[in-house]
Amino acid sequence: MKPIVFNGKFLTVAPTGVHRVAEELIQAFERLMVNCQLVGELPEVTVAAPTTAERKPALSLIRLIKQGFASGLPREFPWEQINLPWIARNALLINLCNMGPIFHPDSLTMIHDAQVYLTPASYSLGFRLWYRLIQPLLGRTNRRILTVSEYSKVQLVRYGIAPAEKITVIYNGCDHVLTHKPAPGFVAERGLERGGYVVALSSTQAHKNIRVLFKAFSDQRLSHLTLVLFGATNRETFENLGFEVPANVRFVGRINDAELSALMVEALAFACPSTTEGFGLPPLEAMILGCPSIISPCGALPEVCGDAALQAAPHTPDQWVEQVLRLADDQGLQARLREKGRQRAGLFTWDTAARKLAEVIGLTVLDASLETSASATKSR
């Protein structure tokens, strides 16, 4: 089997949700290798990263190499487009973070969503133009496109990224959160009480739709509860952008995995009001920890969460108020959602995702071998 190279450009920046997927999937792929669950001879597997990469995934069998003359340039794009194809010239290249080099057709690229088409206001003009230029080229030249939900697959087909028969869905896992023991005392130190707050991701991106939560928590019916937002975006940033932030909103900033686990374990609910999501990992992370989720019925959220989460319309604050109050007033409902949420989220594991990736790699290598054989036959 030919060597495999994972695109490690994501190791140069602070981790985001997409980067989390890449790191967890590579680690799970290594567990498959260690457990000898990959069929046939084990390939040589490498993560290739720019020399500026400071983070290092927890790997023992898979090598990390750092090289490339263009690695110090802005956003690492030149490294990905110039250096990486040479580094992976005789290998199957796997790109897990939406992008990859144009001139390496022996590739698989995971494109998580079509948000640059669905919610262009969430991204800068340069970002939108780059994605709209490169991703359709990857869809045409790569051996296969991977994505994270059936919803995303439909959208990638809709916007001409790739035909349906060329796209494989590999669902994210969420079981990584179970490896982090909740940080003791974190919730109390923030002045929060168990069951007295709702958690959500702090983001100004248009499709994250935090405005509807601000409107809901400005309602007097929720004045006794707190909306806790985690992430880099603070109150001042929202207010400078014209958001009206209620007094009962608390910003806890960037937090680590143990602190996030503590926050979710003791929360009344996790709220995800997004108008679209390619997958929707945070609600599942909450559910597997026993925190009920309230989601909008948009994007891949219903596909992923099933009937194990409550739903509220994305632009109707009253529905969010009502669903939060239902949970607060009904301990039986809380218990049922905790149990259903754990069961549903437990279906999404990184080991399952890695096995699916291994299957796709097997098919890809077979396809490449058939093409080589066909070319040799024609040349005779």
Score class of each variant (00 low, 15 high):
Asp330Gly: 04
Val252His: 00
Glu30Met: 01
Phe6Cys: 01
Asp318Lys: 15
Ala300Phe: 08
Gly191Val: 04
Met110Val: 03
Ala121His: 13
Arg235Lys: 09
Leu125Gln: 09
Ala309His: 12
Leu25Thr: 02
Phe238Lys: 01
Ala28Lys: 02
Ile102Asn: 02
Leu125Pro: 00
Pro314Phe: 12
Gly68Thr: 06
Ala376Phe: 11
Leu325Arg: 12
Cys36Phe: 14
His176Asp: 07
Ala88Leu: 10
His176Asn: 12
Gly306Asp: 08
Asn7Pro: 00
Lys215Pro: 00
Lys340Val: 03
Ala164Gln: 11
Ala353Thr: 05
Arg355Met: 05
Asp175Ile: 06
Arg143Ala: 04
Leu366Asn: 12
Glu189Gly: 15
Glu24Tyr: 02
Ile62Lys: 05
Ile161Ala: 08
Ala262Gly: 10
Val13Ser: 00
Glu165Tyr: 08
Pro273Arg: 09
Pro74Gln: 09
Gly191Ile: 03
Ile26Val: 09
Gln331Pro: 05
Met110Gly: 02
Leu260Trp: 11
Cys291Leu: 14
Val177Leu: 13
Leu284Met: 15
Met287Leu: 15
Met1Pro: 01
Gln67Glu: 15
Leu42Cys: 07
Ile87Arg: 08
Ala374Met: 15
Ile167Gln: 03
Glu23Thr: 03
Leu225Trp: 03
Tyr171Gln: 11
Val5Thr: 04
Ile161Met: 12
Val47Arg: 09
Ala162Gln: 04
Ala22Asp: 00
Val198Asn: 02
Ala286Trp: 13
Ser71Gly: 15
Arg342Phe: 04
Pro3Glu: 02
Ile82Gly: 01
Gly126Trp: 06
Pro15Met: 03
Ala91Lys: 03
Pro3Asn: 03
Glu80Val: 13
Thr226His: 08
Pro283Gly: 12
Glu259Ile: 05
Val5Gln: 02
